[in-house]
Each structure stands twice: as structure tokens, then as C-alpha cells.
Amino acid sequence: MKAVIAENISKQYDGKPAVEKVSFEVNEGEIFGLIGPDGAGKTSIFRILTTLLLPDGGSAQVHHWDVVKDWRAIRNAVGYMPGKFSLYQDLTVEENLHFFATVFNTTIQENYHLIEDIYVQLEPFKNRRAGKLSGGMKQKLALCCALIHKPKVLFLDEPTTGVDPVSRREFWEMLKKLKQQNISIVVSTPYMDEASMCDRIALIQSGSILSIDTPQDLVKNYGNQLFRVKANDRYRLLEVLKSVPSTKSYAFGEYAHVSVEKDHQMDASEIAQHLQQNGLTEVEVGEAEVTIEDCFINLLH
């Protein structure tokens, strides 16, 4: 059985399309990532799947329940962490958790094993008000609250946005552990580097899915040649690279990446030569390792 099936779902606000015919499936027990920038439609998709919004077109099922007809069943069975960490700022850590446990008809004890790893980190602060926690701590508490009723599917809408890199990394470790408990997870993020933490990802932009694959296959099927280039003056480098035919170039970390279109072949020395002819020095050209970000940029072109 699939954890989530979305078929051609569409949603518009005041005539402006936010989601356009999006289809994907999430297998049971996998971490499925929706990767894309703000305004790509991620939140709308989450809200449709969690029965908070009605789709304008298409259909979707969560754990074989229909998102329109069986909304009550879905609400009983899923965990949801909205984009804004939804906690009561004036309640303590423990009070928040206890409250959400009761709302979901369970107790902290009953499913403690699920949240244990996360909660031990929060325990020293259990009498602190949620509003006084750091971003990373808030995020962990929100996850505990979303998990406390042992949901079948967990929806996490941009859980790592605005959280520092240390907490982000810890968060993904926690998701890996949850996966072992056979909870299916749908997670969205604007950070490309987090894509590799997912089993499968959908790259999404302007309400449409660009590609769905495992991170490994996505990188493998990149197709184009990719070079990484460096020179003494980065600004000039990017200017000069724009004039190389049949290529796309863009800044990438301390390098610039040059993507050569499929039907053209080019080798490193050609590029180096071109750069030197244009007065750049300390030129360095090599094969680059393809990342999800390169794939995304390639799909956007």
C-alpha cells in the first residue's frame, strides 16, 4: 500500500495557479522530499494532503483514504508540522507535549518510545516556556508533538527553515530513526543539500514537478558534462564564461560550474584556453561532481 498518492492535484488562489497537476506517490516507510524554493507550491500540497485545503482538481489519497471524503480518518492518522512551528509559546515544553497528546487521544507514556531519543534532549528544559527555546529546540518539540500519537504518515513542511546547520543535521538524523519505526515521512525543504537525506525526491518549481527520482539516480541521469572552473577574478570569470557557446555557467561555491549541452563535447583545456585568452590568470578547470543543485538548475533552464 502507498502512503500517499497524488493524482493531478491542482490548486489556485484568486485565479493564480499555486499547484498545477502535481502527481506523485510515496511508498510506505520512505522519506519523500519535496524540494523547491518559496512559492513553489509546497505548502499548498501539504495542506491538500492533510485535508486542510480542498484541491481544485485531481485527487489524492493518504493511506488509502481520500483527502476530500475521508478527511476525518486522515486527521486521526497523520502527524503534521506546519511551516511555522506551531507551539503554544506561553506553555512549557511538557505542557505543550501533554496537551497535544491529549488532543490526539493518547498519553505521553503510550508512545514514549517514539519520541524518546528527541525528548531526552528537551528534558532538561521541560519546565521552560516554548517561546524561550532556541529555533532548534522548538523544532524538536514540534516534532515530538506531531509524533506523539504514532501517526502513520508524518507531514513536515519546511521543518529546517531558519534553523542553524547543527540543528538541521540533527533533525535529519532523527528522521532516519523514525523511518525505522515504519513511519512514512513527507518532508519539504528549500535547501538542496538536504535532498540527499531523502529516499526519493520531487523537485518542484512554480507549482509543477520538474522531476521525481532517487537523489542518486537524479545525479546519475544528469547527462551533461560538468566542469568546475576557477580564476583570479570571479566577477570577470562569470562574465567571460557567458560567452562560451553551448554552455550554461553559474557560480558554485568557490568555483563556477560550466554545464555543457548534451550534443556538444568539450574538454577542460578548451575552456581554460578561452579564459586565458580573455586575460584571466590562475585558471583552474576540472571535472565537477554533479549535485542535486546542478540538476535543479539544469531543469530550470
Binding site: N76, G83, K84, S86, Q89, N105, C145
Partner: peptide, 13 residues
Amino acid sequence: EMGTMEVLLVSPF
């Protein structure tokens, strides 16, 4: 405003 209503809606309550 706080987004807690979203969570409460997606609950058996």
C-alpha cells in the same frame, strides 16, 4: 495566526 489552529484541525479533536 500562530499556526496552532492548523495542527488542531489536523487532529481528531
